[in-house]
Design a protein around this nucleic acid. Structure first.
Lengths: 148, 148
DNA sequence: GCTATCTGTATCGCACACGATATAAACGCT
DNA sequence: AGCGTTTATATCGTGTGCGATACAGATAGC
């Protein structure tokens, strides 16, 4: 019933470090899988977001990925240069930039399905375990975001 | 019993994105707590590692935090400039650089205990729930690191 | 119609994170 | 002793990630 008794936590006991390390491990797992496609991990996340629903404005992508335009604008410019997406200003509202998949960007979804399978296998989890862990982590994220 | 049926996953269904977002949420929670101390989140992790055991070589810190010297060297130089640690070459092996807490760096541990409490409260979890989630995530990390 | 404000995106500077490369010290083998 | 290899750290370039700021277009209020 004591609240906390952590004399010398060390990184190993910290939830935040567990998340930090797991995120690093995940990006390191994805890196060699994405490299043949010329994609970085955040760029891959942008594609995933656009595969689910194409033609999103920069702000909507940022809200979904938790990134601001200071990160997204240069990232999207690189993806546009690579021929994965197009960036076009809206006609009715000149402030808005709409991001749209190119044929090349859309065609990468097939290859990505294979990557998803590799990653799933590497987790060593069942579908149920993976879903449960993901949901717990997502609930934690929601809780943390309320205390900013 | 079907293995996978994910027609349009989207970021919301992905474990990797859950980790990505949770890690971001955690760093955003820590940021305002660490800012008064002039610390970034990775710098804070270095201090935690040194509080648990002082006088570590650069390579040992890197192994613990999962970072290479290309990240650690400039980070430790900034921490040395800020008066948190010292970097000294070993006498018996000139290749080795030992990182050691200064009095100032050591004295920050007290303040950090307060931060740990804030973060724990923000998770909305019990100690048991937190430990369980942390262990699950750590097991996932171990599993992922075997498939690099 | 004019201005103040808000909104959406872009820019700048700094701090990670990492692949690739460099460099010096230590070690091993003959 | 000499020399190739390994080891520990450092450097460089690119790509996020974010606080602060800038700016143009849209909106509201008068």
């Amino acid at each position: 019933m004591t609240q906390t008794a952590h004399p010398l936590p060390g990184t190993g006991d910290m939830l935040c470090f567990a998340l930090y390390s797991a995120n690093h491990a995940m990006t390191r797992l994805y890196r060699p899988l994405l490299q043949p496609l010329g994609l970085t991990y955040p760029q891959y996340l942008v594609l995933v977001a656009l595969w689910a629903e194409d033609e999103k404005r920069v702000g909507a992508l940022g809200a979904e990925l938790g990134l601001d335009t200071n990160t997204l604008t240069p990232l999207l410019k690189r993806m546009a240069e690579a021929g994965l997406v197009t960036r076009s200003r809206s006609a009715e509202d000149e402030r808005v930039v709409t991001v749209k998949l190119t044929d090349r960007g859309r065609s990468m979804q097939a290859e990505a399905e294979r990557i998803t399978g590799c990653v799933f296998a590497a987790t060593g989890l069942s579908v149920a375990e993976l879903s449960d862990l993901r949901d717990r982590i997502n609930r934690l994220t929601e809780e943390l975001e309320q205390h900013v």
